[in-house]
Design a protein around this nucleic acid. Structure first.
Lengths: 204, 204
DNA sequence: ATAATTCTGTAACGATCAGCAAAAAATTTT
DNA sequence: AAAATTTTTTGCTGATCGTTACAGAATTAT
């Protein structure tokens, strides 16, 4: 049913190449010539496939978030709230420390920062953050109901705390901290998280 | 001893105006016309006083960091390590939540992200982070020697942890979290910090 | 084969970018 | 008052920005 000349490039591969450029240069810092060069196509092909620079960026962000979505699902499948928190923090540490060698360490959303012309990025960051935070909170609400967390626990505050630490870890990774340091921070942060029955103090 | 036509603008006020523009738009996102308009001067005056756009940005960052330096000194003057950690986290929460109304909430260094042409910003973030982290670590080393912290404590890890949480808090503030949420996160984070003699567990 | 359709490549568009040359204006020194 | 010095103002520079016309190439449908 498809007529006309076929596409000479793979859309997903092109998005991955564009992601690397955006990751390193930011949204405004990435020029069209850099993008088209990295993607191996000419600008008209880019515009026909993605609409505009912002359209390309949005699709890059969607593709990026899809990976995180899969990660979050595996986190939420943890048997206990504490195990979920543990998986989350250390999973984030792994995620931002080693990005596969293709991109610098850190988080794409934070790396691009507020450098978008409009409020596209801040809004997107806030939305994605709210999604992850709500998922953790719901998991912790369930944990309280199941007796997995102490009755006095505040699921919303715990979720907000974990999200905050994860963002901090991403910033540290971008600043050059290695996996060992990131996981050490995650371990200390876990000391604030209540256990099912006993509390375990951690000094360092 | 000063000859020639006097300057018609206050350098420090001009830097503050430029800071607001950089804060909202990022380095690349801030254009010279926006900067000169906000500063109330023409481009040649700007170039004569600050050298270039990057020179202006560097001076803005130095001015920004000076405020944080004063804050860190008050933190380090705390009588105990735990009090210093408490002042640090809650001080950061105050700092990033209310920026005086002139700038959006958050941290200028993180807000501008990696959006600088060269690696000026990442390097500067890493340097400033290292300075603050070293100051906290030294304070905690002294605390261990004074018996203010448990003998088994790891001052470097604790300092890295606090810095990480502070960065996370700054990201949350930029994403729209209010002071109450930020301080709640700081309270939870403090539960991981060892006390002088007794440990205090915190559930939420 | 021919028409219709879709993509690719070349080249260019107006707009905006950071930065600067030169003359007019305002001050100090002689 | 006149020379010297510094800043301000005006208007411009070449380069680069994101985006798009247009014509040729490659495919499917008739």
């Amino acid at each position: 049913m498809a007529a006309g000349r076929p596409r000479s490039f793979c859309t997903e591969k092109a998005l991955d190449s564009a992601m690397q450029v955006f990751w390193r240069k930011g949204y405004e810092g990435a020029s069209m010539v850099e993008l088209t060069t990295a993607m191996g196509i000419n600008s008209p092909s880019l515009y026909a496939a993605f609409g505009s620079k912002e359209g390309l960026f949005r699709q890059v962000l969607e593709r990026y978030d899809a990976r995180r979505q899969a990660f979050m699902e595996s986190v939420l499948r943890a048997p206990t709230a504490r195990e979920a928190a543990h998986r989350f923090l250390h999973g984030v540490a792994d995620f931002v420390a080693d990005t596969g060698g293709k991109t610098p360490p850190g988080c794409l959303l934070l790396q691009c920062g507020s450098s978008c012309g409009d409020d596209v990025i801040p809004d997107m960051v806030a939305r994605h953050r709210a999604e992850k935070e709500a998922a953790l909170r719901d998991r912790f609400v369930r944990a309280v109901a199941e007796g997995d967390l102490p009755a006095g626990s505040d699921p919303a505050a715990l979720a907000c705390y974990l999200i905050t630490v994860s963002h901090g870890i991403a910033v540290q990774a971008a600043a050059g901290d290695g996996p060992a340091q990131l996981h050490a921070v995650a371990d200390i942060a876990m000391a604030s998280f209540p256990a099912a029955k006993t509390r375990e103090p951690v000094g360092a």
